[in-house]
Every structure is written in structure tokens, then in C-alpha cells.
């Protein structure tokens, strides 16, 4: 009796999980499917889920549009994201190492200030950050997308927690050999921190790639548009042509997806670990 019950439950959970996958993926599948339909077919009734013929017309419109240069936007965003992630990793791990392993004056004060900033919601400083970057002459340059978002305490907090758990003996050997603190950070701590760096690095890459509000406030010249801005403006320009918008969305979703799939082993494991603590 028990075994039968168990078996039905397992079958049930397989079916249920299949439905879950559908719930996750159907919107994305619908996006891809529609991007290969002509507008005529999109609005036709009775409708078919899959296109009659898979036509790349929307992609042609997307990449040859005179009004917006989508390739340029992809390159812009990739450039910004890569520079941002590199700088963020360097700055945050460095600070975290110093907070975790070095003693210096005002350390507690600095650490408290850093932690305090974690509790300030973005909206409280949105307008005044805008004014600040304006004063610094960064408006409508890539710097405005790269630099202000480097300010953040969460990463420092996260890496510090990780560094505190690295055994002292590992650096003692290096210290005896006369290595400087920076060398220890570079040669001992960084190689060990690969997992959290991948986790937070992919997170900030995806964050920059997907950001919309800040770029739409600060970037005004179309040659510097970011991907999400372009998708949004496609939606406004071709409000009746969902096919093109879906094509733009499908392309715009690929880079984060690739990054995620490459590092998913780290990401899901890291999430499961941090979830327990």
C-alpha cells in the first residue's frame, strides 16, 4: 500500500515538475516563436502557436533599422558590463581582504560606515546621485554607467565573511617568506575566492546588462544607448509590430543566459549554500 502511494506521488511530482518547467519557459518560447512570425500572422485569428514558416524578417528589420543601431547597443552594453564587473571584483575583494585580515586605525569606524550604506534604499539618493554625476561631468558618457554602481557594501561584506574563514596558516607561510600583504592577497586569497567571485561577478554582469532605469536617466545620445533602452524604444516605435520587439528581446536575453549557463554550477551551488546560512 505504502509503495503504491509513494509511486503515485513520484509520478505526480514528475508531471507537476514538467508543468513547472512549462510555466518557466512558455513565455520565453512564445517570445522566440513570435519573433519568427510575420506581423500578419501575429494578429491572425484563429491563431497557431508555431509559425507557418519560420521567417527571419523581424531579425532583418532589427539589424538594419536606420533609427536605432542594435549592434552598437549590444557592444556598448557588453563594454560597460565587462569594465564594471572587473573593477567591482577588484575593489570589493581588496577592501574585504583589508577588513578581514589587516589592523589599522579607524577600521571599526570605516567598517560601520560601509555597513550603514547597505541600509539606504536607492530611491533616497536617485535624484541627488543624478545631480552628483552631472556635477562631475559624467552625464551621457559610459562612466556614468560604470562608476556610480561600483559603490556598494554588499560584496565587501560577502567576501569578508569568506576571507575570515580562510585559515591563517596559509598566509603565515607566505609571510615568513617575506611576501608583502598585497602579494598575499593576490596569490593566496584571490585564487581561493574563485567561487564567491564568480557568484557575485555574474550577478553584477547580469545586473548591468538588465539595467534600465539608470541608463534611461543618464544616457541621452542614441549612439550610447544600452540594450534595454533600445528594446524599450523599439516597443514604443513599433507598438503594433510585436515580432520585431520579440526579436530584440530574444537577442537581448542571450548574453545573460550564456553567462548563467557557463557558471550555473557555481551559481546554484552558491545560492544553496548562502541560503542555509
Amino acid at each position: 500500500m505504502r509503495a503504491v502511494e509513494r509511486k503515485t506521488f513520484t509520478v505526480f511530482s514528475y508531471v507537476f515538475c514538467f508543468l513547472l518547467i512549462l510555466l518557466c519557459l512558455i513565455p520565453l518560447i512564445w517570445m522566440i516563436v513570435s519573433s519568427f512570425k510575420l506581423d500578419r500572422e501575429v494578429w491572425a485569428y484563429p491563431f497557431r502557436f508555431f509559425p507557418n514558416k519560420w521567417l527571419p524578417n523581424n531579425y532583418q528589420t532589427l539589424f538594419t533599422s536606420k533609427r536605432v543601431d542594435y549592434v552598437q547597443a549590444l557592444l556598448n552594453t557588453a563594454f560597460v558590463a565587462v569594465i564594471h564587473v572587473t573593477l567591482k571584483l577588484a575593489i570589493e575583494t581588496m577592501s574585504a581582504y583589508a577588513y578581514a585580515r589587516l589592523e589599522f586605525r579607524f577600521k571599526t569606524l570605516m567598517w560601520r560606515v560601509t555597513l550603514f550604506t547597505m541600509f539606504i534604499p536607492n530611491i533616497a539618493i536617485l535624484l541627488t546621485s543624478f545631480v552628483t554625476v552631472k556635477q562631475l561631468g559624467m552625464l551621457d558618457t559610459f562612466w556614468v554607467l560604470i562608476i556610480p554602481s561600483l559603490a556598494g557594501a554588499y560584496g565587501i561584506f560577502f567576501y569578508r565573511q569568506f576571507f575570515l574563514n580562510i585559515p591563517l596558516s596559509m598566509e603565515e607561510a607566505a609571510l615568513v617568506d617575506g611576501a608583502s600583504r598585497f602579494r598575499i592577497y593576490w596569490n593566496v586569497f584571490l585564487p581561493n575566492a574563485k567561487a564567491p567571485m564568480v557568484l557575485l561577478g555574474t550577478g553584477s554582469f547580469i545586473g548591468v546588462w538588465n539595467s534600465f532605469i539608470w541608463p534611461s536617466l543618464t544616457i541621452t545620445s542614441p549612439t550610447k544607448y544600452q540594450v534595454m533602452q533600445v528594446i524599450r524604444s523599439f516597443r514604443n516605435m513599433y507598438s503594433e509590430a510585436f515580432g520585431v520587439v520579440m526579436a530584440a528581446s530574444a537577442i537581448g536575453a542571450i548574453p545573460p543566459l550564456i553567462v548563467f549557463l557557463i557558471f550555473q554550477r557555481y551559481i546554484i551551488k552558491g545560492m544553496l549554500i548562502s541560503g542555509i546560512k
Partner: peptide
């Protein structure tokens, strides 16, 4: 080591100061 420590911390602290604390103060 003190110098190293400050050199390592100043970037993050300066960023927080310019892009979080100063805007908050202005707000």
C-alpha cells in the same frame, strides 16, 4: 601594511562617500 590597508580600502570608501553618503546628505 598600514599603507597597504588604506590603499586597499580607499577606493571603496571613496565611492561610497561620493555616490551614496554625499547624495544622501544632499537629499
Amino acid at each position: 601594511d598600514h599603507i597597504t590597508a588604506y590603499a586597499m580600502i580607499i577606493p571603496s570608501l571613496a565611492l561610497l562617500g561620493v555616490f551614496v553618503l554625499y547624495p544622501l546628505y544632499t537629499s
